[in-house]
């Protein structure tokens, strides 16, 4: 599934670029995520997802597949599997940074693939829930760039 988000930060494109490229800052912004190891462009970690009584822990790896500072484009790929074998999840996050009058505009496109039992549990909620989680992720990143606390509202 494809999810798109857009936000603007009152920070320079350069600052924004640096924040986005700092895995230690970016990854923990994802709800439930912890970073266990960073090795250059690659990292390992886990994401604990809690939706009501459901609790899934995806363990996996990620890496930057593209970093084009001139174009302001970052492509981050991550994939993991639930530690109880319930299924796999993968995401390709493409962020494009554009300089604006007041700072930087960020367009984020996420291609999310959730397989196995969680996908079956959907009743259409997976997309909505994923959207909200990504929104929280991006809010967190934005707050880091603007040195604000996350507002909690999109």
């Amino acid at each position: 599934m494809e999810l798109t988000h857009h936000f603007e930060v009152p920070a320079s494109k350069e600052t924004t670029w640096q924040t986005f490229n700092d895995l230690e800052q970016v990854v923990p912004c994802f709800p439930g995520a912890t970073l266990t190891e960073v090795d250059g462009d690659e990292f390992t970690g886990q994401v604990k997802v809690k939706i009501g009584p459901i609790s899934l822990t995806y363990q996996g790896t990620g890496r930057f597949v593209e970093r084009d500072e001139a174009a302001g484009k970052i492509v981050l790929e991550a994939s993991g599997k639930d530690r109880r074998g319930n299924g796999n999840a993968g995401a390709t996050v493409t962020a494009v940074l554009t300089e604006t009058a007041d700072g930087t505009a960020v367009d984020v496109n996420t291609d999310l693939d959730i397989g196995g039992k969680p996908a079956q549990f959907g009743r259409g909620m997976i997309q909505s829930i994923s959207n909200k989680m990504l929104q929280r992720f991006l809010d967190c990143i934005r707050s880091k760039m603007t040195d604000e606390q996350p507002t909690g509202t999109p």
């Binding site: 009584p53 609790s55 109880r84 319930n86 969680p118 549990f121």
Partner: peptide
Amino acid sequence: MDVKVLAGGQSLLPVLKLRMADP
């Protein structure tokens, strides 16, 4: 601990049986 409250269990138990949670 990671605790789950069990009331009537009609939503929780199916999740536990499918191992979508393991409190």
